[in-house]
Computed example of a mutant assay.
Amino acid sequence: MADPTLIPLQVWCPHVTVACVVADGDRFLMVEEEVNGRLAYNQPAGHLDDGESLTTAALRETLEETGWTVDLEHLLGIHQWRSTEHGDGVVRFSFAARPVSHDPERRLDDGIRRAIWLTRDEIVALGDQLRSPLVLLSIDAWLSGQRHPLHLLHSLLAEDRYP
């Protein structure tokens, strides 16, 4: 029998990302960002860091990209997609959040030009400038009333405000 430590382990690993749909009336918090030399629009979103819970990542990314502190209310969905930017698989956890406070003096992440509030119609009008099809998918999930409790997610690696 072969020694399993001598067999190279090849496991496909998708990018794990988080995003927040933050609504204020009929407007949604969006980021305008420079991506590979083009202007793109997205929800506050980003990659999960090693040792970080999904909910902590969603709160962190929203603050870093918009200056907004938010409270997570629900999980909207888990979406799988193959990125047209880099060709890799992406698994995105989308959250619904409510705005709590804003720090207009906070320096935003590199590449982020500004945080803006847009209606769904204004977001649809951006067309190919949307960073991915997951932007509208998440907003439409929110608008249709799709809500899942945060307690579905568990992290054994990090402190988490939303066990």
Rank of each mutant, 00 (worst) to 15 (best):
S144R: 14
L118D: 02
R147E: 06
I7W: 04
V18W: 01
L72H: 03
P99C: 11
L76D: 01
L6I: 11
L63Y: 15
L136W: 07
L136H: 07
R98S: 15
G46Q: 06
M1A: 14
R114I: 00
A141P: 01
G111M: 10
G111H: 10
E105W: 10
E52C: 05
H154G: 04
D50P: 00
W68Q: 02
D50R: 06
E65A: 04
A58S: 10
L157T: 11
P104W: 10
A158T: 06
H79T: 09
A45M: 15
A2E: 08
H79K: 11
Q10T: 12
Q80Y: 09
W68T: 03
Y162M: 07
D128A: 13
H151L: 07
H47I: 05
I116G: 00
L126W: 01
R92E: 15
V35E: 06
S101E: 15
C20V: 11
L54G: 01
L143T: 08
W81A: 02
P163T: 08
G111A: 10
R114M: 05
D110Y: 11
R147K: 09
L137V: 13
S132A: 15
L72G: 03
C20L: 08
A158I: 04
L156E: 08
E64C: 08
H148W: 11
C13P: 00
R106C: 04
E85T: 12
T55N: 04
F95C: 08
V70L: 08
P4V: 10
L75W: 03
Q146W: 02
I7K: 12
L6T: 15
L48M: 07
L29D: 01
W117C: 04
P104M: 12
D3Y: 11
P8N: 06
V90R: 08
L143R: 14
D88M: 12
E105K: 15
I112C: 06
L108I: 08
